[in-house]
Simulated assay, not measured.
Amino acid sequence: MSTMNTLSEWFSTPPGKYLLECEQALFDHSVADIFGYNAIQFGLAEYDFLRTSRMPLRATAGDEIGVQVRLDAEELPFGCCSLDLVILPHVLEFHPQPHQILREVVRVLRPEGNVIISGFNPHSLWGARRALGAQMNYPWCGNFITLPRLKDWLALLGLNVITGRFACYAPPLSNPNWLNRFHFMESAGDRWWAVWGGVYFLQAIKHVSGMHLIKPRWNEGLVGKLIPATPKLNREISQCTAQNPEGRTIHNE
Rank of each mutant, 00 (worst) to 15 (best):
E236W: 05
F166R: 01
A73I: 13
G43R: 00
S2N: 15
V31L: 04
T241V: 15
R70F: 12
V86K: 01
W140V: 02
W10Y: 15
T249S: 13
A61V: 04
E104G: 14
Y200C: 09
S30N: 05
D48N: 15
F27H: 06
A170H: 04
N114T: 12
H183L: 07
L102S: 08
F184V: 12
Y169V: 01
C141Y: 00
L102W: 05
M1E: 13
L71P: 08
L88W: 00
I162M: 06
E253I: 08
E64M: 10
E9A: 12
V67E: 12
M136H: 13
M185S: 01
R70T: 15
N5T: 05
W178T: 02
H207C: 02
Y138L: 11
F120G: 01
G62E: 01
L156A: 15
W192N: 02
S30H: 06
I116F: 07
K215I: 12
V161C: 06
G198R: 00
F120Q: 00
Q100P: 02
D28H: 10
K232E: 14
S8I: 03
V67A: 04
E253M: 03
C22S: 09
K215Y: 12
V223Y: 03
G224P: 00
R103I: 14
N121S: 07
L173H: 02
W193A: 10
T13D: 06
G62A: 08
A134Y: 04
Q97Y: 10
N180H: 04
A188V: 05
R165E: 15
T163V: 01
I237F: 10
G164A: 12
H212S: 06
F42Y: 10
N219P: 05
K225L: 09
G210H: 06
M55D: 09
V69F: 11
R107V: 09
L233W: 12
A131R: 14
D63G: 11
Y169P: 02
K206W: 03
D152A: 09
G189H: 00
